[in-house]
Write a protein that binds this DNA or RNA. Structure first.
Lengths: 156, 156
DNA sequence: CCATTTCGACAACCACGTTGTCTATCTTAG
DNA sequence: CTAAGATAGACAACGTGGTTGTCGAAATGG
């Protein structure tokens, strides 16, 4: 039998797999009229969703401070992906929502993700890919969000 | 047969898998006398290796600018993991090397990584884990380094 | 009705990345 | 052997994304 690889390879491969997908997603998004979109932006728009949300709520959902969420919202607003409105029922809240452009980016992202997954299925075989996903589900927390996606490399 | 999951789950699971391992590694490292170590630091020390290197060389190996590499070296030096020497054969070069503390951290990291991998093997079965690693190798670039590990979330 | 909580904004700071510029030093070509 | 070019490292300015802390305005609950 062959010997096991050193333990440090596994996390490296997981990260590289993530990066490969994310980079191809954004290359394709750029081709489809959304250059300038950053990986983080996809997570944020996904978290904003079609119902809209507020900075504080978004921060909670993403696991970052409301200030950080607010800054990101500003960036996405300047880029034309989000717009801010007011809540007639609560004058403190400023609801952010996806613009048409934001929705377009989200729809395209979903399609591209599916295509990339299909490419992996071709390479690995549908069964192996499904097994890979099943295995990953067994060793990772169930909640698909709550990835304080940046931050884990940064501050303690 | 069951239906395929949406394509966006795969990258998420890959990232979460990476994070789970890295977080457990650093929790254990903290317990073993190395709190304050950041994920990035492990990559850098691994890239420095036992032979030592220079800022420019390190930048090339990691895929970042020499200035960025230099700053990281400064941080690791202040934390006592690296030390700077001079190269008698080339007065421009300032060779950085692991201190005893740096080597200790690297040795402990390797052992912890192996232990974490063994835990995954218990959960998934040794065969499935090996298959998972094989599959990831087939869809990611061969070179284990050259992960400009931070940066892919940040600047274009 | 007032105390508490929550929301959003602002400021200061840190980590990590980038480019650009500068000097010192090594290397190579004429 | 020297002049020109490449390379190492330092320094500055800036961008992004994150953190705390503070603050006023608005909602809520005893």
């Amino acid at each position: 039998m062959s010997t096991d690889p050193p333990g440090f390879e596994l996390p490296l491969r997981l990260l590289m797999g993530f990066r490969v997908i994310i980079e191809e997603l954004h290359a394709e998004l750029a081709r489809q009229g959304h250059p300038g979109l950053r990986p983080m932006h996809g997570f944020v728009m996904q978290a904003v969703g079609t119902r809209g949300t507020t900075a504080a709520e978004l921060g909670r959902r993403l696991g970052v401070s409301k200030q950080a969420a607010g800054k990101t919202i500003d960036t996405l607003m300047k880029a034309g992906y989000l717009e801010r409105g007011t809540d007639p029922a609560d004058a403190r809240r400023k609801v952010v929502q996806l613009t048409a452009r934001g929705s377009d980016a989200l729809v395209r992202s979903a399609r591209i993700f599916d295509e990339l997954r299909a490419r992996w299925a071709e390479t690995l075989g549908a069964d192996r890919l499904r097994a890979l996903e099943d295995d990953l589900r067994r060793v990772t927390p169930p909640d698909p969000f709550r990835l304080d996606v940046p931050g884990w490399l940064g501050t303690p």
